[in-house]
Design a protein around this nucleic acid. Structure first.
Lengths: 339, 339
DNA sequence: GAATCCTGCTAAAACGTTTTAGCATAAAAG
DNA sequence: CTTTTATGCTAAAACGTTTTAGCAGGATTC
């Protein structure tokens, strides 16, 4: 594409490069460029369709006006919805967004974060795989503005926007208990940190409060790259003899749908034989057979708050950390066996 | 973050900036920097965790190693899946991806494309709102490498990767006909260009081939920001007297799920009263009640091909356009009333 | 009529790279 | 011994901005 530079404009109008730059950046008045000269510059720039080279600008200013978004998987609707929201808010503040998926892989996450820093992003929003203490720590030590979302490093003090996992899971378990279920299982992901841990703990805690059993085989941790066979085995085990599960809480939306799929495969009636609840909504859960009861997570709010905090962190030097837990809301549908 | 520049390294090692740059770019041998010097440079760079400033690099080389992705809405699973795939392929080729959602809005699309060009992206992948002839034309005229996906401008010769809409929709209609339905309706989006048009045409054509009626009220165009009320009215009208629809083909996945929702709301039995087919799959359509028959679109392939074509376009000067139509595949489930 | 102040600019450095042309010195060839 | 060739570098320009310091000349003040 043909490029017109400030220099070209300056030469053509017989003024200095500085005059053009100042004018085009709205500092013409302040720096006493006469109205007439300013007008000539603006008009010619427009006519020539001048566009600043963001590399030159970035190099000079040391700012990119880019926010980096690092997530496990942009094609997961949970993250793509957050991405959309972040994009929207960032746009309002004049920032572009660059994203990377890490596949829950620590090396990749590290590489992607590094690559974003190389691109001079002004700030980062990260849904980390939670094994990447070293990068998070490094960012923090360098006072680089970033916000963790969804996934927390409890041992590191950082900006964070997450959900009230404890309240969310307990509302799910309580719902099942109210519906008369006693032998309640929990299917989660095999990630032994933060968010996931909180959900499990909340399940255990709630069961304990109600003096309900949590026996061997009540809790299952799925591999992130869980295949269907895995889920089928898990479901089978939970249903047969020693366990005799009557209800299952799934720690995240895609586990719930995969779980339901396998339950159907095995001809188990939901909720009659087994009731289920999902921690996390998914588009059209209401159309499933049965409609799935889910803990609704305020995704938009997560995106909004993350950007909000990040922007403030970027502006204010000596910004102190902000940690947010967003309230969840149980959406009761047929799958939980409520009367 | 602390930054080490080439200059810093050069000073510390008492060599020239060029020596450092050449070495670090693997041109040391070629440019006859001695092995020992090279070793010193590499080691010190590593030790100091040197990272090139991509602005300076980009400014100098006139390349950004960024691919821009412009889509209507990154939170639409259709696009986020494509995005993931594009990201993956781009990464292999050493490119980062920057994305923008346009909300099917022409001004926004124009702005976003401009912003990406300002960022010096090396190439663009665009799912356009299809009203943006002027930008597409401008890109083409400037010989800027780009690939259109999903949405085509039939009047402009460009790179394009899309689906075989005609084959896809006709397979859907044919399925319904085979299942014995005669009065088949079509619910689509109110966008009067390209892809959407093709789908409608294919529906009309297929109906004609089978000498089936397409009466007033058989075809409905929904606003992109369709609200539920709209869909409910449409469904109502199609089902009552003059129309008496027995089956509906939805032109895209989210119309299908919203359609099903409203059918349920109205207590219509699917597929007994009305059979439905969706053009476009959605995660877990198999778990819906009833499971939704859908035309499966090879999304991953779309991402792969788009990047492939783009990269070749970026490399080869005088690249001639490539247009691809990916074959679709009908996935038969309960909603179409097949026996 | 000298000092001060304003007006309207400009020159030049800086940001961190890449890349080309070329300069010493040493070794090899004649 | 002179010329050629090879070795191991370096200097400097260029990429397109932003920004700071300051200069010339006219108007105003005392």
């Amino acid at each position: 594409m043909k490029k017109v530079s400030i220099k070209d404009i300056a030469q053509h109008l017989n003024v200095s490069v500085s005059a053009v730059s100042l004018t085009l950046n709205g500092k013409g008045d302040e720096k006493r460029i006469s109205k007439t000269t300013q007008k000539r510059i603006v008009e010619y720039a427009q006519e020539q369709n001048y566009r600043p080279n963001s590399f030159a600008k970035g190099l000079q200013k040391g700012k990119s006006e880019i926010i980096g978004l690092v997530v496990p998987n942009i094609s997961d609707v949970f993250f793509s919805r957050i991405a959309r929201r972040i994009e929207k808010q960032a746009e309002q503040a004049g920032y572009d967004v660059i994203f990377s998926s890490t596949g829950e892989n620590i090396e990749k996450e590290s590489k992607k974060i590094q690559s974003m820093l190389d691109r001079q992003v002004d700030g980062l929003i990260i849904a980390s795989c939670q094994k990447n203490t070293s990068d998070i720590l490094k960012l923090k030590q360098n006072n680089f503005p970033f916000v963790l979302i969804d996934r927390l490093y409890p041992e590191i003090e950082t900006n964070y926007v997450g959900f009230d996992n404890v309240g969310g899971v307990s509302s799910a378990v309580n719902q099942l208990i109210q519906a008369g279920r006693k032998r309640i299982g929990f299917v989660t992901l095999s990630m032994n940190l933060g968010t996931i841990r909180e959900r499990l703990d909340s399940y255990l805690q709630t069961m304990k409060e109600h003096a309900l059993p949590v026996e061997n085989g009540f809790v299952h941790e799925m591999d992130y790259n869980n295949d269907e066979a895995d889920m089928q085995n898990v479901i089978r085990e939970m249903l047969k003899k020693p366990c005799n599960i009557e209800a299952i809480v799934f720690a995240t939306h895609f586990l719930a749908s995969e779980g339901l799929r396998q339950l159907k495969e095995l001809n188990i009636r939901v909720p009659d034989d087994v009731a289920i609840v999902s921690y996390g909504e998914q588009k059209d859960f209401d159309l499933f057979e049965p409609a799935i009861t889910a803990v609704n997570l305020p995704i938009n709010e997560m995106g909004d708050k993350a950007v909000d905090i990040l922007l403030r962190n970027m502006k204010e030097t000596n910004f102190s950390y902000e940690q947010l837990r967003l309230k969840t809301e149980l959406v009761v549908r047929k799958s939980c066996g409520a009367k």
